[in-house]
Write a protein that binds this DNA or RNA. Structure first.
Length: 481
RNA sequence: GUCCCCAUGGUCUAGUGGUUAGGACACCACUCUUUCAAGGUGGUAGCACGGGUUCAACUCCCGUUGGGGACGCCA
C-alpha cells in the first residue's frame, strides 16, 4: 500500500506551492487507496510556532485535504534522531564539527573572494582535527554532527529519470545541529523510513537535498522510497512563486473570496492534466482521474485571472442556498444584512451570482439592496449622459415617481410596464429613462435588470430613493437640462 | 560561478513519427440586452534554434540558446 506525506514547516503560513504538493500527495494516496499523513517539520525551534501549525491545519482542512495519520511533530522525536545519529557516529560515517557559524562564514567569504565565484563547500576542518584540538573544543564548544560524504549519489526520479551528482558536488552536511536537534535532511530520512513512506512527492527545489538523503539511506542500509519531484509553481516572471508576486498564502485566497473547490481544481491543473479537454472537476472526479504519469515537467505560472474565472464558474453552478452559506463570513457584519433576513438575501443572490467571480464581490456589487447608495458613481453616469443615452430632466423622473405612487401592486412586470408607459407618454425611448433610474436606485451604471432590482427593493424604497436623487444628486450632476 | 532541472500561442495545457497542431484563460470584434456581467459567434497568437536518426519529425538523439532551481547548524 502506498503511503505519502505532506511535511510543511510551521515557520510561515501554508504556501500555495506547498498546498499543491499536499494536493498531489493527497490525490495520489486517495487514487491508489493509500494513506496520506501530515508531519510538521518543526526542527527549527526558533522559527516554528504553534500559531503557524494551526494556520497550516486550517488551510489543509479548508482545501478538503484530510489526512489519515498525524500530525506528527518532529520536535517530539528528537530522541529518535539522536539515537540513529549515534549509530552513524559509531560506524564512523559522521564526525563532530566544532566550527561556529561565524567561522564558516568567514572562511566561505575568503574562499569565494579568492576564486571570484560562489560555490563553497565545507572544508572538512573538523575532520582533520588533532586529538588535542578535539579535546580542547570538546571542553569549550558544542558540536554538530557532519556526515562524511565519500561517494556519489544517484537516484531514479519518477518524473525526471536518473539524477546523479558526484561526491565533489556534495558537501559534508550537518545531520545534528549544535543544539542537539536533527536537521531537515536527517529528520526527513528517518521519519520517511520509520513511518513507512513509499513515495516522496515534493517540489523540484528538493532535488539537491535528495542526493544527501540518498547517502543517508545508503548509510543505514535502507531502501529509499520512490522520489517524485514536481516542477515549481511560478510567478508571472517565471521565477519561483513568492511573496513578492502577491498572495501566496492559502488562507489569503480563502479570505479574498475564493471557493475551496475552485482553488483545488485550479491547483490540480497546475502541472497535471487528465488529458483531453476536461477542466472543471470536483475533488472526487480529480481523485478518480489522477495519476503521476500525467504530471508535467514544466514549471507552471500561477495565473490568478484563470483562477478567478474558475471561481466564477463554481459560483454560477452553486445553489443559491449553498452560496448563502458560503457568503456568510463576507456579509455577516454588513449593515442591513441582519434586518433583511435570508429570504431576501437569497433573492439578491439569484440576481448577483452570475456577476460574481469572488465571494467578496457580493457586497461591492449589491450593497444597495440593503442600504441606500452611499456613493453615486457620477463620473460613469456623466459619460453616459454625454453619449446621449440617458435623460436627466427632473420632470421626467418625477413623472415616474408619480406613476409609481399610483401603482397598487409592484412586481417586475408592473414596474416595467409602468416605466415603459411613462417613456412612451413622453415620446422617448425607454432606455433614456431607465438609465437614470438605475443610477438613482443603485448609484451605479451597471448591474442586474432594473425591474428585477425594483421588485426586490419594493415600491416605497424605489420612490424614496428616486425622490432623494431628484432633490440631492441630480442638482450636483451639473448637466444642462 | 558550479551542479541539477526544464522548453507547444501572453498563461494553463492536449498531442506521443504522418494532425488544417486541439481545448481553456486572457485579449479583440460582432451578437444579445435597459446597463454591467453571463451567453453565443468569430478572430489575433504557438511547436526556441542548429544538427542528426527516418521515406516522414512538435514528437526520438546530440548540441546551442533561453528560463528556472540548489549551493545554510532553513525547511
Amino acid at each position: 500500500m502506498v503511503k505519502v506525506r505532506i511535511a510543511p514547516s510551521p515557520t510561515g503560513f501554508l504556501h500555495v506551492g506547498t498546498a499543491r504538493t499536499a494536493l498531489y500527495n493527497f490525490l495520489f494516496a486517495r487514487n491508489g487507496g493509500g494513506k496520506f499523513i501530515l508531519r510538521i517539520e518543526d526542527t527549527d525551534i526558533e522559527r516554528s510556532s504553534d500559531e503557524m501549525v494551526n494556520v497550516i491545519i486550517e488551510s489543509l482542512k479548508w482545501m478538503g485535504l484530510h489526512w489519515d495519520e498525524g500530525p506528527y511533530f518532529q520536535s517530539e522525536r528528537r530522541d529518535i534522531y539522536v539515537e540513529y545519529a549515534d549509530k552513524l557516529l559509531q560506524a564512523g560515517l559522521v564526525y563532530p564539527c566544532y566550527c561556529t557559524k561565524e567561522e564558516i562564514e568567514e572562511r566561505k567569504r575568503v574562499t569565494e573572494k579568492k576564486k571570484k565565484k560562489k560555490g563553497w563547500k565545507y572544508d572538512r576542518r573538523c575532520l582533520h582535527l588533532t586529538r588535542e584540538e578535539k579535546k580542547q573544543f570538546e571542553r569549550e564548544r558544542a558540536s554538530a554532527l557532519r556526515f562524511r560524504v565519500e561517494r556519489a549519489s544517484s537516484f531514479e526520479d519518477f518524473l525526471h529519470g536518473k539524477i546523479e551528482r558526484s561526491k565533489e558536488d556534495i558537501e559534508d552536511f550537518v545531520i545534528i545541529k549544535s543544539d542537539g536537534m536533527a536537521t531537515y535532511n536527517f529528520a526527513c530520512v528517518l521519519d520517511d523510513h520509520l513511518m513507512g513512506i513509499t513515495h516522496v512527492i515534493r517540489g523540484e527545489d528538493h532535488i539537491p537535498n535528495t542526493h544527501k538523503q540518498i547517502l543517508l539511506y545508503e548509510a543505514f542500509g535502507w531502501m529509499p522510497p520512490e522520489f517524485v519531484h514536481l516542477p515549481l509553481i511560478l510567478g508571472p516572471d517565471r521565477s519561483k512563486l513568492s511573496k513578492r508576486h502577491g498572495a501566496v498564502s492559502v488562507l489569503e485566497y480563502r479570505d479574498r473570496g475564493f471557493l475551496p473547490e475552485a482553488f483545488v481544481n485550479f491547483l490540480a491543473l497546475l502541472g497535471w492534466s487528465p488529458g483531453g479537454d476536461r477542466e472543471i472537476m470536483s475533488l472526487d472526479e480529480i481523485i478518480g482521474l489522477f495519476s503521476l504519469e500525467r504530471v508535467g515537467k514544466r514549471g507552471a505560472v500561477f495565473d490568478t485571472k484563470k483562477l478567478e474565472w474558475m471561481n466564477g464558474e463554481y459560483i454560477k453552478k452553486m445553489s443559491d442556498g449553498e452560496l448563502l452559506r458560503r457568503l456568510s463570513p463576507f456579509i455577516e457584519n454588513k449593515p442591513g444584512i441582519e434586518e433583511k433576513g435570508d429570504e431576501y438575501i437569497l433573492r439578491v443572490i439569484a440576481l448577483l451570482k452570475e456577476r460574481m467571480t469572488l465571494l467578496s464581490q457580493f457586497w461591492e456589487l449589491g450593497s444597495y439592496f440593503f442600504i441606500p447608495p452611499e456613493q453615486y458613481d457620477i463620473e460613469s453616469f456623466t459619460k453616459y449622459v454625454k453619449k446621449g443615452r440617458a435623460e436627466t430632466r427632473k420632470e421626467r423622473i418625477e413623472k415616474v415617481i408619480n406613476a409609481f405612487k399610483e401603482l397598487k401592486k409592484f412586481d417586475r412586470d408592473m414596474a416595467e410596464n409602468c416605466v415603459r408607459g411613462v417613456a412612451e407618454g413622453m415620446g422617448i425611448k425607454a432606455a433614456l429613462i431607465i438609465h437614470p433610474i438605475r443610477f438613482a436606485l443603485t448609484g451605479k451604471t451597471g448591474g442586474p435588470g432594473l425591474f428585477e432590482i425594483m421588485e426586490i427593493l419594493g415600491r416605497d424604497e424605489c420612490i424614496k430613493r428616486l425622490e432623494y436623487f431628484v432633490e440631492n444628486i441630480l442638482p450636483q450632476l451639473n448637466i444642462k437640462n
